[in-house]
């Protein structure tokens, strides 16, 4: 198992956000976390990234425990995150955003190489490198956010609601991006409200309700599950 979350408990003050969440992420797979608002999906990602500390439980990555490491050390180990709502540094240029994603790269040549790689991957970005991030459209911003996360050569990409606020066409494009990222050998943990898209992409899926995992199975099987259909797939495209 590449990434393993074992019996994770997380509190915000006295409120319990996670009550014993366990998740297994096999290497090369796409794992999706489904659930309503406040189910604990984002909290799970934030805890894995180290910006939120667990009260108890363990997180293992490549055979070592990472739940007490600082965020930058977790990025160094190979876990990058595309935060919810993209959250680019709006006052910086696209290139500077990418530079931040590549903060841990030591050499400038390495950075330039990665930038080239990303502009190949996302051709739209090529002309946008000098623009301020705030000047970009939502779809472009999402690309920059993914590119930024990929700059550090991660082995696992945590994606928090990448389709949020995008047009249906853009949602499709994001799905393609996720697929292609995964095909590059990057393991993906995908948090989504758009369960239909997520289940189509993912190998395995977990359903969270108020801080607990209530269902987990292969994505194909879960898509057929009556409860999932009723709660998450009903009436949505």
């Amino acid at each position: 198992m590449l990434l393993q979350v074992k019996d994770l408990w997380v509190h915000y003050g006295r409120a319990e956000a996670l009550k014993g969440v366990s998740i297994d992420v096999p290497e090369g797979s796409i794992v999706t976390l489904l659930g309503a608002n406040g189910a604990g999906k984002t909290t799970t990602l934030r805890t894995i990234s180290g910006v939120k500390r667990a009260t108890s439980g363990e997180i293992w990555f490549e055979g070592s425990r990472i739940d007490s490491l600082p965020p930058h050390e977790i990025v160094r180990r190979g876990i990058a995150q595309v935060p919810e709502g993209r959250q680019l540094f709006l006052s910086l240029t696209v290139k500077q955003n990418l530079l931040m994603g590549a903060f841990l790269l030591k050499k400038k040549s390495e950075f330039m190489h990665k930038v080239e790689e990303m502009t190949e991957h996302f051709p739209n970005l090529k002309e946008r490198l000098g623009n301020r991030a705030s000047d970009l459209s939502g779809g472009e911003q999402q690309m920059v956010a993914v590119a930024r996360a990929l700059m550090s050569n991660p082995r696992v990409l945590l994606m928090d609601e990448p389709s949020l606020g995008l047009s249906p066409i853009m949602v499709k494009e994001v799905a393609e991006i996720i697929k292609s990222v995964n095909s590059m050998g990057v393991t993906v943990v995908l948090v989504e409200q758009n369960a239909r898209m997520a289940l189509r992409l993912a190998d395995t899926a977990y359903v969270l309700e108020v801080g607990r995992v209530v269902l987990s199975d292969r994505a194909g099987a879960l898509a057929q599950d009556e409860r999932v259909k009723a709660a998450y797939l009903g009436g949505r495209c």
Binding site: H72, Q87, F89, L90, S91, G101
Partner: peptide, 15 residues
């Protein structure tokens, strides 16, 4: 500048 704008996201970049 990144830290000033959004400290958490800056940390998520490995800063």
């Amino acid at each position: 500048q990144a830290c000033a704008e959004n400290r958490e996201v800056a940390c998520l970049q490995g800063i």
